[in-house]
């Protein structure tokens, strides 16, 4: 019988799902605002490869001529988005959860192993622990992006009272562009996140709702370690049948 592992603490689950609503609200109302001056393109030299956004996009989502509404919603959701984000950072710091989330110097190499493995370019399995190094980069990075959105947002919301901030970000127009670019970043994060959640299967997804997951080890409960790149043992034992070759490779990765 496989024991249950407590994977995600309740506050993190609530804040995660609340953020889904808040960030969606911010992006939707942000699009209502952006429509009024949609000047950003992806260009190669002088050729416009993609215009943010084509007419069909605005029409399909009903985003036309709703600037006033967009501003009101954006300046309402901003409080929730900021407070929820600050609460999340505060909680991870106080509870010690940050240890699972923040990458270390050793994480760069491990993240590379994860990328190669997930792209099926290598059979070296990344260590199985709560969050692998690639996840750590992604989840810490997206929190930093959230902080960036708050700062760039404040810089375009109050460019006189926070003139020093607007100035530090390169001026009003740059701050608006940075605010937009971060939003594109969330969309890319979301696509990658959803892909990985689908790949990981139902149990992993349900754990973000109920908090628990069956441990992946049959013989012993998974030990969640605080320092990365230690203890590959439970995983290796599981993989013994797959041959010593994989094991050697994994050991090698660990040693280097």
């Amino acid at each position: 019988m496989r024991p249950l592992e407590h994977k995600h603490p309740r506050p993190i689950r609530w804040m995660h799902w609340l953020n889904v609503v808040l960030l969606s609200g911010m992006i939707w109302s942000g699009l209502l605002i952006y429509w009024a001056n949609d000047v950003y393109n992806v260009r190669l030299g002088r050729r416009v490869l993609f215009h943010f956004f084509p007419d069909w996009f605005y029409n399909a989502l009903g985003l036309n001529a709703r600037l006033a509404q967009g501003m009101a919603w954006h300046l309402f959701f901003m409080w929730g988005f900021a407070l929820n984000g600050l609460a999340y950072v505060g909680y991870t710091l106080i509870s010690g959860e940050w240890r699972h989330l923040v990458p270390t110097r050793k994480s760069f190499r491990e993240a590379w192993v994860v990328v190669l493995h997930d792209l099926h370019l290598s059979n070296v399995e990344p260590p199985k622990r709560k969050f692998n190094a690639a996840q750590q980069f992604a989840y810490t990075g997206v929190i930093l992006m959230g902080g960036g959105s708050l700062l760039t947002g404040l810089a375009i919301y109050k460019p006189v009272q926070f003139g020093w901030l607007t100035n530090a970000l390169g001026g009003y127009e740059w701050a608006r562009f940075e605010h937009f670019a971060l939003t594109v970043g969330y969309v890319l994060f979301f696509l990658m996140h959803i892909t990985q959640v689908i790949r990981s299967g139902w149990g992993n997804f349900a754990a973000m709702v109920c908090g628990y997951e069956l441990t992946c080890s049959v013989t012993q409960p998974l030990t969640v370690v605080t320092s990365p790149v230690v203890s590959l043992e439970p995983h290796l034992e599981q993989k013994v049948a797959e041959g010593a070759k994989t094991r050697e490779k994994a050991e090698l990765t660990r040693a280097t």
Binding site: M1, P3, T215, V224
Partner: peptide, 9 residues
């Protein structure tokens, strides 16, 4: 922090 199994294995 180690994971605490809800039930003993």
């Amino acid at each position: 922090m180690s994971a605490t199994p809800v039930t003993s294995p």
